[in-house]
Simulated assay, not measured.
Amino acid sequence: MKRYFLVILLVIGVLLNSCITNKDLVYLQDKGDGTESSLILNELPKPYKVQVSDILSINVKALDKELVGIFNPVESANNNMQNDAGLYFNGFTVDLHGNIEFPILGEINVLGFTIDEIETKVESELLKQYFKETAEIFVTVKLSGLRYTVTGEVGGTGVYTLFQDRVNIIEALANAGDISQTGDRKDVLVIRQYPDGQKIHHIDLTDIKAMKSPFYFIQPNDIILVKPLKRKSIGAGQTAIQNITTISSILSVLVSTYFLTRNL
């Protein structure tokens, strides 16, 4: 009997300790001395530098629209096709050498440049090679959406595109259905592309200090991977009620087994 009693206690202990608590679920908790509860994010993310395979949307404007028509041959098409496919076919893709092919100007190297730097570069080249200063041209350059991938313990895995300049990781996850109850918010992986290859980074989204992390704001082509909690791997319930139900079932089986073996 004592052996069965010890087994029962062990099972109960494991199941009760495997409950998913608020500390596992709540984002941006103050885990320090309370001074972080009103944390202000003073440091903005560094400007993104364009990489290979990025797609740029470049628009040249002037008082005389006919004057810049050659540089915007697909402007009307873009107005009717503002989606990933339209941007893919009508945007300027950065090739393996870091160049884009621009009308009249030919190849322009943009690898490692920020969006503002590319605007200045294109405008400068246009004024140098094609326009006069009196043309009063205006160049706008944007990334054709912030594209990222989410996989793992989330509501909806997949590749997403948001048409915003800045997106933090919580917004990105919310757009993918948020992290499920069995997802590990304390160790979310961000796989980021760099000129020399991909690197894996870790961020604890249950800690308010995550807002100071360089990976709090996502970048184009980021992969966000949410691992399952260890509790899920042992098949424990997510809540106390689920665990009580499991314990009751196990107790019922153990008691029945005990009396059956006793009567043999």
Rank of each mutant, 00 (worst) to 15 (best):
M1P: 07
M1A: 09
Y4A: 13
L6Q: 02
L6A: 14
V7Y: 11
I8K: 06
L9F: 10
L10R: 00
V11Q: 04
G13S: 15
V14K: 00
L15E: 05
S18D: 09
S18T: 08
I20C: 01
N22C: 04
L25N: 09
V26T: 15
L28K: 05
K31R: 15
D33F: 08
S38M: 06
I40V: 15
L41F: 01
E43A: 14
P47Y: 06
K49M: 07
V50M: 07
I55M: 02
L56E: 08
N59R: 14
K61L: 14
K61H: 03
L63K: 13
E66C: 00
L67N: 13
I70D: 14
F71S: 06
N72M: 05
P73S: 06
V74S: 12
S76E: 13
S76W: 02
Q82E: 03
N83W: 03
N83S: 09
N83K: 06
D84M: 04
Y88C: 00
N90A: 14
G91H: 09
F92S: 07
F92C: 01
V94C: 12
E101K: 08
L105D: 01
G106T: 07
L111G: 01
F113G: 00
F113H: 12
F113Y: 11
I118W: 08
K121F: 10
E123N: 12
L126Q: 08
Y130H: 14
Y130P: 02
K132A: 04
I137H: 08
V141M: 10
K142S: 14
G145M: 12
Y148W: 11
V150D: 07
G152L: 09
E153K: 13
T161D: 07
D165L: 11
A172V: 07
L173G: 11
A176Y: 11
G177V: 11
I179Y: 00
T182V: 02
L189V: 03
D196W: 02
G197T: 05
I200P: 00
H201Y: 15
H201C: 00
H202F: 07
I203Q: 03
L205F: 05
T206K: 09
K209V: 01
A210F: 10
M211P: 02
Q219C: 06
Q219W: 02
D222V: 12
V226K: 04
L229P: 13
K230N: 14
K230P: 04
A236Y: 09
T239L: 00
A240V: 15
I241W: 05
I244C: 04
I247T: 09
S252M: 06
T257I: 10
L260D: 00
T261H: 05
N263E: 10
L264A: 07
